[in-house]
Amino acid sequence: MTNTLLDITIIIPNYNTRELLKQCLTSIYDYTQGITFEVICIDDNSSDGSADMVAAEFPKVILVRNTSGQLYAKNNNLGMRMSRARYACLLNSDTRLIANAFQSLVEFMDKHPDAAACTPRLLNPDGTTQMCVRRFARMGTLILQGLNWHKLFPNGVVSTNYYASNFDHSREQLIEALGSTAFVIRRTTWEQAGMLDERFPLFQVDLAYCYMLKIKDYKIYYTPCADIIHFGSQSVNQKATASIRMQHQGFIDFSDHYDYFSSNPLTKFLIRQAVRLRYWLKLAEFHLSKDKRVIKGPGRAPITRSS
């Protein structure tokens, strides 16, 4: 049966990013060659005509039309269950290929049989490297992160211990965690270790999955063998306040479900209260700021109030 599998399935969940999705799909078919692949697009009940555009302009794409919002984890898990390939790439719709990235990623995984998963180098639209790698930080670091310590001290402990600001993006290496913008997973990984944790419908699902792989001794690699442009958080920014709430609930769920900081009930209670305080601070910051992005990063254009 293995000989009949395709090389890679590209799974693209989409919610109201019609033009970005079109650009993403166009770049996949323009650049991808030398491998066998399929594209599964799971439209999460968009209202902007995304699904009709895919059906009309990309007939090779396997299109799933959700009649209600299922969110990120369920949509990607559906894609993995549908996959007919040796690898699956969980790809955001707000990405664009600039070269034959998927052939390079398939070749990388073939050469590294110990790799459960990998991620390529992500670029901001201006061509600078996007910080996609994360480290599993301890409680003190995350408290400082919630207080925006990294903005006051860009080279401080939060930047290095959580955002991995000193990470060398020019060399291949093992990593602890990553954002799942372009996350290539080996079939045996999702079949044996499991798929995304659907208790995290949107936020922190990538953190939870990487942590699950870590405690099961699976290896995740970063590789600069391929570059993909990422415009960043285009779906979540559409419902910003709801996204901020879900983002913080994800932190609470991660602490509760994975005993990340402690299994002690009192410690978990204090963490929940701290995260809720952080939520109200972030919500106030959002309403007071002109920049209306939920997730910010260098090279990403701000979303501002309408005049």
Rank of each mutant, 00 (worst) to 15 (best):
N148E: 11
S27T: 14
Q70H: 05
S165T: 14
G232K: 04
P201R: 00
K268A: 04
L20G: 02
T67G: 07
P120Q: 12
R186H: 01
L105G: 07
E191N: 14
I28D: 02
V61Q: 01
Y31I: 07
Q249F: 09
E19T: 12
T189H: 02
G140M: 13
Y258K: 00
E57S: 13
D110V: 04
K60Y: 02
A301P: 07
K74Q: 12
S47M: 10
T4S: 14
Q247K: 13
F153L: 12
L277T: 14
K60L: 07
G69R: 15
K22N: 15
N14A: 13
D7W: 02
D7N: 05
C132M: 12
I28R: 01
L123V: 13
D30R: 13
R276K: 06
N92I: 05
T9N: 13
T189R: 01
I143R: 14
L63M: 08
K216W: 05
A115N: 03
D30N: 13
S180K: 02
A240H: 07
Y258C: 02
L196G: 03
H169E: 06
Y72F: 13
F269N: 04
P13K: 12
R135M: 06
Y29Q: 03
D253C: 03
Q204Y: 15
V275E: 02
Y222R: 08
L174W: 05
G299W: 01
P224G: 10
T32D: 07
T67A: 11
P265W: 11
N166Q: 13
T304M: 07
G127C: 07
K151I: 08
S165L: 12
A99H: 15
T2F: 12
R84M: 10
S180L: 07
K216Y: 06
S243L: 05
G156N: 09
R272T: 04
S243N: 11
P13F: 06
I143D: 10
S50R: 01
L152R: 15
D206S: 05
A177R: 06
C132H: 09
Y211L: 06
R272K: 10
T67L: 13
P154T: 01
D114F: 01
R187E: 04
K290Y: 13
F286G: 09
F203V: 09
I244C: 12
V64N: 12
I143M: 15
R278V: 06
K214C: 04
G179M: 04
T9H: 04
A117G: 03
Q103R: 15
G299I: 00
I271F: 12
R84H: 14
I252D: 07
Y162A: 10
R300W: 14
V184M: 15
I40Q: 03
E57Q: 15
A301L: 14
L20C: 01
A56I: 06
G127S: 07
S170I: 03
R305I: 09
K214V: 03
V294A: 10
C41W: 05
L123D: 12
T188C: 11
Q70A: 11
V157K: 13
I35Y: 08
A137K: 02
Q247M: 15
I228T: 02
G140D: 15
I175P: 09
P125Q: 11
P298D: 05
Y218H: 13
T2G: 14
L174Y: 06
E38W: 01
I215L: 08
Q130F: 15
R245K: 15
I252E: 09
I252H: 05
L281G: 03
